[in-house]
């Protein structure tokens, strides 16, 4: 039973921590991030800018820029711990078993190399095939990624293509070795709405063929459209995890509720845009207790003292919040008794 479960999960992050050295100690950018990405499904990772989404993706792909580094936890790709692997061994998994696409498809493609060649390269690094065979595979993949007239596009340079086409090329490059895991870091942020929908559909198609996809976005609309499960991140921590329906119908963490109401008020076209008051905290100076407490509309006294742990409130639905049930602030009882005692 447990075996089967592990088999299904392509990627498991287990208590992943990462940070940058600072004058005093380190700034912790990822704080015990745990999540799993199962085969054939799209797992979303949402959160405000700077909460550590890209950092999570980069940690998996070993792309964290100096001087940042992973400081703890495990990254398991089909049960193999990437962090305890030798450098070369880990590198050989990159591009072959896991691949990544980035936010800006213009700057992510080498401007002086034909796009076809860049896709070829992904094949040639990992497989001992002839150039002709690599090209054949590339053309096939370009076709599958919805690039019209692949034979001609193969010889194009990135600057000759539209943003949507470039992102399709990136997807083809990522998928050409049929990886088990695809990480997409805000793949549609730089694209317009219609192209965004097409790219999201393409990702859905890829996952239907069995790839596990980790889709990073700050756009809840995009997440709602394609994801099966969602993790919500705030200031380097996962604060809520659930399947898509639960998350959108019964969000429990105040932060998630805030995000959702910000979107729905946009959709209603109501005059006042509901936004979460306050701003993203400085990771170097996080408040005591729950990181979200300074902005939380339902914080209790306890929230500023006790750091909440991740806990499961119903099967598959986890939150990092002291709230026992909606409508009742944590620590309220204690407050009341204290008040009584004072009288």
């Amino acid at each position: 039973m447990k075996e089967a479960l592990i088999q299904k999960e392509v990627l498991i992050l287990d208590g992943l921590c990462a940070g940058f050295p600072a004058r005093r100690g380190e700034v912790r950018v990822l704080d015990h991030v745990s999540l799993s990405v199962p085969k054939g499904k799209i797992t979303g990772l949402v959160g405000e800018s700077g909460c550590g989404k890209s950092m999570t993706a980069r940690a998996v792909m070993n792309l964290i820029r100096h001087p940042g580094r992973v400081t703890g936890g495990r990254i398991l790709l089909e049960g193999r711990d990437l962090l305890s692997m030798r450098k070369k061994e880990r590198r050989m998994l990159q591009g072959r078993e896991m691949a990544m696409i980035f936010q800006d498809p213009m700057s992510s493609l080498n401007p002086v190399m034909k796009v076809g060649k860049q896709v070829d390269e992904a094949v040639l690094v990992h497989e001992h095939v002839t150039h002709a065979e690599a090209k054949r595979r590339t053309l096939e993949m370009l076709e599958a990624a919805g690039v019209p007239d692949p034979e001609r596009r193969y010889h194009s340079y990135p600057h000759q293509l539209s943003g949507g086409l470039r992102q399709r090329i990136m997807i083809a490059m990522a998928m050409v070795c049929r990886p088990k895991l695809l990480i997409a870091d805000e793949p549609t942020t730089a694209l317009d709405v219609t192209v965004e929908a097409q790219i999201l559909d393409l990702m859905k198609e890829m996952s239907a063929k069995g790839t596990a996809v980790l889709l990073i976005s700050h756009n809840l609309g995009a997440i709602a459209r394609v994801c099966d499960d969602v993790s919500v991140m705030y200031a380097g921590k996962i604060v809520e995890q659930a399947d898509i329906c639960t998350l959108f119908d019964r969000p429990r963490h105040p932060y998630t509720r805030g995000l959702l109401s910000a979107v729905s008020s946009l959709r209603d076209g109501s005059e006042v845009l509901s936004v979460i008051p306050g701003h993203v905290p400085n990771l170097a100076r996080l408040p005591a207790g729950c990181s979200f407490s300074p902005r939380c509309s339902c914080r209790g006294k306890e929230c500023m003292e006790k750091t909440p742990e991740m806990r499961e409130i119903s099967p598959g639905h986890r939150i990092r919040c002291l709230w026992e049930e909606p409508g009742k602030k944590p620590g309220e009882k204690e407050l009341e008794t204290e008040g009584l005692a004072a009288e």
Binding site: L63, Q94, A99, F102, N110, E121, V125, M170, A174
Partner: peptide, 8 residues
């Protein structure tokens, strides 16, 4: 980064 992600 793209090149490194490819496994180069």
């Amino acid at each position: 980064d793209t090149a490194r992600a490819k496994g180069l």
